[in-house]
């Protein structure tokens, strides 16, 4: 599945960078961004709508500090899933709201997913239930509880040289 990257010009990249890192909380945010980019308010909004319909922008939202909002606990689970059981296991796992990420990976443990419970819900209980419902034996399952959160910051650099290069790559 080869997907051509969306073409971005210099102003698109600067716009993405500013909107990602610190969106202006102001009456007319597009005008504030436009001022920095040398574009009108209308031009900025038009670019934003284009980037959104092209799928580059997923959404504008707040990211909250879990630690300041009370306790969440999480784990990373891995399973060795036989190919003929993969569909079933993925269906079971994905049904859980507390499962936020679920990826197939190139390893004997070929399915990796995170389970996060907040606000008093019991992580242990959820993990046990998932194990039971998937039918994958304990011997083929890893439950790697989080001991340290060093970083969660899904941000990208749009204005560095590599993105520049990304435009010309096939």
């Amino acid at each position: 599945m080869k997907m051509e990257p969306v073409k971005l010009d210099k102003q698109d990249k600067e716009l993405l960078q500013m909107m990602q890192d610190e969106f202006p909380v102001e009456e007319r945010p597009w005008a504030v961004l436009g001022k920095k980019l040398g574009l009108s308010e209308e031009e900025v909004l038009a670019r934003v709508k284009k980037l959104s319909s092209d799928g580059v922008i997923r959404k504008l939202r707040t990211i909250l500090d879990a630690q300041k909002l009370g306790s969440c606990s999480s784990t990373l689970m891995a399973m060795k899933v036989p190919e003929d059981k993969m569909d079933h296991v993925v269906r079971v796992v994905n049904e859980y709201m507390s499962v936020t990420h679920n990826y197939r990976r190139e390893h004997d443990y070929n399915l990796w997913f995170t389970v996060t419970t907040c606000g008093g819900k019991d992580l242990e209980e959820t993990v046990e239930e998932i194990k039971r419902k998937t039918g994958i034996p304990d011997s083929d399952t890893l439950d790697l509880r989080t001991t340290h959160v060093f970083k969660i910051d899904v941000r990208f650099k749009f204005t560095d040289t590599e993105v520049e290069g990304g435009e010309t790559r096939g």
Binding site: M3, P5, V6, L8, L16, M19, Q20, D21, E22, F23, V25, D54, G55, V56, I57, R58, K59, L60, R61, T62, I63, L64, D65, K68, L69, Y103, R105, W112, V154, F156, F158, V163, G166, E167, R169
Partner: peptide, 26 residues
Amino acid sequence: LRSIGVIKRLGISVNQRKVGIVANAV
């Protein structure tokens, strides 16, 4: 809420695949 840190960030999330960042590994 942003200044007291309840909001860690207010900004866009981007689909990095669309800008060519297609590989990821644990």
